[in-house]
Amino acid sequence: MNIFRFAGDMTHLMSILILLLKIYATKSCAVGISLKTQELYALVFLTRYLDQFTDYVSLYNSVMKVVFIASSLAIVWCMRRHPLVRKSYDKDLDTFRHQYVLLACFVLALLLHEIFTFQEVFWAFSIYLEAVAILPQLVLLQRSGNVDNLTGQYVLFLGAYRGLYIINWIYRYFTEDHFTRWIACVSGLVQTALYADFFYYYYLSWKTNTKLKLPA
């Protein structure tokens, strides 16, 4: 494992922990956390890590899989079941039609996968779903206009994770003999592109030292 991938995993973990701590500390998911995005991410981890008990790669991978599944489920649980957090959730702003995205990703996974097995189709599904799972969150931020600091940092860390994974793939492409994984790389590029717009406005707010606001 190279340093870029490790840094990518750590920023990914940081983003999830920032969100979990924010919700836990403030007992609120206002302003601007999308339950739909969080449910999609939980589904991403659950469908990708079906190999947890069948394919062992490393202790690091196995532990991280459990941490990712548990932390993403904890966020969903808080937002759905915790009495105070649940009240702070504004579902009228969280309007992205995620069911179409789920269907599209599943059809794409049935058509485009490495091997036609249950695990592999769901692995491909999780990769496609991860690429677009941030969309409800970005739409929610767009609709509410205001982005509070922690929500901004959450998306920033997620974006950093994507960027570092791309550097990791470039590094592996040049240092490993048989590094070809089109599904993960192309989906990863699409996912990172979705953040580019947000990064631009985050950069502007940082540069001018003003509160992050997205254009309507």
Binding site: H12, D55, E120, N168
Partner: peptide, 10 residues
């Protein structure tokens, strides 16, 4: 390279 090896990332 087999498929197992291909999923060594998280």
């Amino acid at each position: 390279e087999d498929a197992k090896n291909a999923h060594d990332e998280l």
